[in-house]
């Protein structure tokens, strides 16, 4: 049974009017985010990701279309109602955006103070949240005394303070090193699991999506190219934009393979096949060598995922036999165009 929809975006458009003409930052955006999802929105720089996430909590007013949050069309709300609604939608940022003149504890109390919550209650809540994000000993520290990862933890605690239903993350890990990124991502996953908070993650890194998201939308030059479960998009990308993001290394093929006129083939491991040495098996069976141009296999949730790009022999018969062999192993094989030359 499908979970309830918490955020629904309908025919959303955003056009910025600038001196040098109109910038269509978002066009024809339709998305559904369900309760409890960790929903990734991925795209290249300038694709419109930040604009999209800012339209979700209406920091940016859409030019057209609707944003329905928890059954209410929030694009038509009055200022006062809008402010109240925002308390159920926390947000964290790439640059953390903490109040620099306030301690960690005061930062976490801040959204509660704004909402008029009693000081003592706010402090108790801050204590609880500092514990949740593993910073109980840094309550009195100022942001300048904290590392990037610690700052983001405070920001997460601050976003959680008013008990939001959703947390929006705009490139929340892009300013962090890989190890810290992982720890922040697993914190977000924990929060999602323990508190049931829906998480919307904006990123330009496929890694982030792969690690914690269950659903993903790909945004490419202002529109949604594709959306679906992470597995679907990851292993059967339908659009060029999706392929570029999922297999950015593909571009390198032009540089390193002795890629002649011959076709290249991408073998996709989509978690259904066992992780046996298929290439070796194929070479032995067909008694002809292949040229491996690229290999990137990953272990996700205990299953084998990834891709290998090979150049098959020029002999059409042998190539045909090899493809047959691969397909008999339940692997998806597709011809890769555009890499030769």
């Amino acid at each position: 049974m499908e979970k309830e929809i918490i955020i629904q975006i309908q025919d959303l458009e955003k056009t910025f009017r600038t001196k040098s003409g109109d910038v269509h930052a978002l066009r024809d955006i339709n998305l559904e985010i369900r309760k409890g999802d960790i929903f990734g929105i991925i795209g290249m720089s300038g694709a419109g990701k930040s604009t999209l996430v800012r339209c979700i909590n209406l920091l940016e007013k859409p030019t057209a279309g609707k944003v329905i949050f928890d059954g209410i069309d929030i694009s038509g709300l009055e200022d006062a109602e809008l402010r109240k609604m925002r308390r159920s939608m926390g947000m964290i940022f790439q640059q953390f955006n903490l109040l620099m003149q306030k301690t960690a504890e005061e930062n976490i109390c801040f959204p509660l103070e704004i909402a008029g919550v009693d000081k003592r209650k706010a402090k108790a809540r801050a204590k609880e949240l500092l514990e949740l994000v593993g910073l109980s000993d840094r309550a009195k520290s100022y942001p300048s005394q904290l590392s990037g990862g610690q700052k983001q933890r405070v920001a997460i605690a601050r976003a959680l303070a008013p008990n939001p239903k959703v947390i929006l993350c705009d490139e929340a890990t892009s300013a962090l090193d890989p190890v810290t990124t992982n720890s922040i991502l697993s914190l977000l996953k924990d929060i999602n699991r323990k508190l049931g908070v829906t998480v919307v993650i904006i990123t330009h890194e496929m890694d982030v999506i792969e690690k914690i998201c269950n659903r993903v939308a790909i945004i490419d030059s202002s529109h949604i190219a594709e959306s679906g479960s992470v597995e679907e998009i990851f292993f059967k990308p339908q659009t060029e934009a999706a392929r570029r993001l999922v297999y950015p290394e593909g571009d390198q093929l032009t540089q390193f393979g002795p890629v002649a006129e011959q076709a290249c083939w991408r073998i996709v491991f989509d978690g259904n096949s066992s992780f046996e040495p298929v290439i070796a098996g194929m070479v032995l069976e067909c008694k002809a060598p292949v040229n491996i141009l690229f290999a990137d296999t990953k272990n996700i949730d205990g299953k084998a995922f990834g891709q290998i790009v090979v150049q098959l022999p020029e002999d059409v018969d042998i190539a045909e036999r090899m493809l047959k062999y691969l397909r008999s192993k339940n692997l998806t094989v597709e011809e890769v165009r555009g890499y030769a030359g």
Binding site: L82, R83, F110, I114, A115
Partner: peptide
């Protein structure tokens, strides 16, 4: 930093609260 004001807006702060508790307080 504009980001700090944006963060306060995302928490549902009113303009008066932003002036008083963010702009003036952070610029002390």
């Amino acid at each position: 930093d504009k980001g700090i004001i944006e963060a306060a807006q995302s928490m549902g702060a009113s303009n008066f609260q932003i002036i008083w508790k963010v702009m003036l307080s952070e610029s002390k």
